[in-house]
Design a protein around this nucleic acid. Structure first.
Lengths: 201, 201
DNA sequence: TTTAGTCTATCTACTAGTAGGTAATTAAGA
DNA sequence: TCTTAATTACCTACTAGTAGATAGACTAAA
């Protein structure tokens, strides 16, 4: 691999990430099984065979997409965790990630992993592993926020932070999916507010 | 429609409902877009073209399936509502419907409408209407249970019963989807328990 | 410095298989 | 004999994926 990138390499990177962008958009809207190379081809403006040049199989594409998506999401999570804000604000910022997903674009995008969850039984092991890793990561971070919130007195609730973290994650994934179909951004906002009210001390 | 059913009619009815059974099973496992007439054909043991005799198009099939599913679900909901039990027990029985879905069969089935929610942007208006009707119905019933629970003192929570009903419904749909992939029946059980703890007085 | 070879990114043209759907036909019961 | 329920045989459109060609940029040797 060369030390310095040529202009050629840059255009490659652009096409590659453009394909990933479009694929992610299509999956978040319609699901993996309703997304085809032909769709991507049309949207990117290259021929179908050229997509196979970058991603030999559809599975390769989805794996690379999930790796990119997870990395990006974990970065946002780390930013929230590293901030000097109170647990209450941190949790609100976490909720914001989900609200932003629905607010973006045509307001019809769900969480990438949320959509894949519904189609999980049609997906290969490497993909399933990455989706479940996403759950675990989210739930661990949430648990940390909840734990420190209990300590600072920001939060007060029955049960343990782990179970509560799982509940909150399930809630956000479910509400994002449903709000997209019925209620929109207003619904997810009021759900977030309600959830905060339930655990605030 | 004849008043008395012939043996032929019975076999018709059987095949028809068998097709619906298999289709429902396949959708709850894999989603609509991963379910084909060929799959149903194999499972039922009739030719692909014979399915078109009962359901001219795939859309017809899904519509009829949703009408049957919703009717059945609303019956179960009515049973719960009509029972002389306390609001707390009623809510627990409502939660039981979701737990049973995951517990049944190979423990890999999600809520039919939950799965369709993820694929909603690929579905026609008549189908979308039926799915959103399912949400509304559930949320209305939940709201009633919560309202009467507040009155009896079974429940105590901040916010209004409507927002709480939506939150609980989103939670159950989300948790059913995720538990199927990670945590199984144990996860949904602990989520239910935790939710009960959050609103119990 | 020219030239020959190599690499990248793309194309056209194709494959085998599957999708939903249709037309014509047949077996059997009322 | 009419109706019902099923069949066979087919169609068109689309699926993921492959083969081979090519234009242009890079590289190394004559």
């Amino acid at each position: 691999m060369p030390a310095s990138k040529s202009t050629r390499m840059e255009s490659t990177t652009n096409t590659r990430s453009q394909i990933l962008d479009i694929a992610q958009d299509l999956i978040q809207r319609n699901g993996v099984n309703a997304m085809s190379y032909a769709d991507i081809s049309k949207a990117v403006g290259i021929r179908k065979a050229s997509i196979h040049y970058y991603f030999p199989s559809k599975e390769d594409l989805v794996i690379d997409l999930l790796d990119r998506y997870n990395e990006q999401f974990y970065c946002l999570l780390d930013e929230i965790m590293a901030s000097p804000e109170s647990p209450k604000v941190k949790l609100n910022n976490y909720f914001g990630l989900f609200e932003e997903t629905l607010s973006s674009g045509e307001q019809d995008k769900a969480c990438l992993c949320g959509i894949l969850t519904a189609e999980l039984k049609t997906l290969s092991t490497p993909i399933v592993e990455r989706v479940t890793k996403f759950y675990r990561h989210n739930e661990e971070y949430l648990e940390q926020i909840l734990q420190s919130g209990l300590e600072t007195g920001d939060f007060a609730f029955a049960g343990n932070p782990q179970t509560m973290a799982r509940l909150i994650f399930s809630l956000m994934e479910g509400d994002l999916l449903i709000a997209r179909a019925d209620g929109g951004v207003a619904r997810i906002q009021s759900t977030i507010q309600q959830m905060m009210a339930l655990i605030k001390s």
